[in-house]
């Protein structure tokens, strides 16, 4: 397997690892969003969805650990590559002007770590509940069915007049989600486009299409994901069907 290690440790190999892990995470983000969008259908849809996921703990943990490994690969390779870039130019320029690099491409290293923080926060917020005012975990009903409260949890997480916290804190949380989702959009937009190139999947013919596709998906993700906290905070979703 030495050839594999050699490849994996080369700059292109690490880029490929980053691209493939990025692609998988990208898929996860889309799936996660589609699931969450069920909030618009109503409490029972979302709660049933939650119950279905929680129902098979074995599989759930396999997926969770898998995601963790993928994330680890993604972050690990990017850290290694950033260090390498630093070493490749120990002395910077007094002046440097870009011509075509986009804000998104230049901020991957900023958006990445912030997104990592966000993921941790998001887990503590809506999975573990440490920073949630009132997280209700799934519970097995007398009937033997698993009952989940995803809808209620989301509602409490973003609504501005939740008991147990102040409006300012809630506003802050909503804002953090929105900012994080914007960064995610930028990160994915450049990341997806970049992935095509890293994997050598692009061709001059449809380079523009690839870029447009990456941008479009990124925009959809931003819109879809942002809409939920916004809808809850403004009261469009929640209270009526919730508590």
């Amino acid at each position: 397997m030495s050839w594999f290690m050699r490849f994996a440790r080369s700059t292109i190999g690490m880029k490929v690892a980053m691209a493939i892990s990025g692609l998988l995470l990208f898929g996860f983000v889309i799936g996660h969003m589609l699931g969450n969008l069920q909030v618009y259908i109503g409490p029972s849809a979302l709660n049933h969805y939650g119950a279905a996921l929680q129902g098979n703990q074995g599989l759930l943990w396999v997926v969770r650990l898998g995601l963790l490994a993928i994330l680890f690969t993604h972050v690990g390779s990017s850290v290694a590559l950033v260090l390498r870039a630093k070493a490749a130019r120990p002395q910077g320029y007094r002046k440097w002007q870009g011509k075509v690099s986009t804000y998104a491409s230049r901020t991957m290293r900023v958006s990445g770590p912030i997104l990592l923080l966000f993921i941790i926060f998001h887990l503590l917020h809506l999975t573990v509940g440490t920073v949630h005012p009132d997280l209700q975990h799934c519970a097995t009903q007398a009937t033997g069915d698993l009952q989940c409260f995803v809808y209620q949890n989301v509602d409490a997480a973003f609504s501005l007049d939740t008991a147990g916290t102040t409006m300012a804190v809630q506003l802050g949380i909503v804002a953090f989600y929105l900012v994080a989702m914007l960064l995610l959009g930028m990160h994915l937009g450049h990341g997806a486009y970049s992935m095509f190139r890293t994997l050598g999947l692009n061709s001059p013919r449809y380079d523009k299409v690839a870029r447009a596709f990456a941008t479009a998906v990124a925009v959809l993700i931003v819109v879809g994901n942002c809409s939920i906290p916004l809808a809850v905070a403004t009261g469009l979703v929640g209270a009526a069907g919730g508590h």
């Binding site: 700059t11 590559l81 490749a88 130019r89 075509v100 450049h190 486009y193 890293t198």
Partner: peptide
Amino acid sequence: GFGYCTNHGECS
């Protein structure tokens, strides 16, 4: 000891 590509496109 060169760096790696993040597809900024400045080189081109």
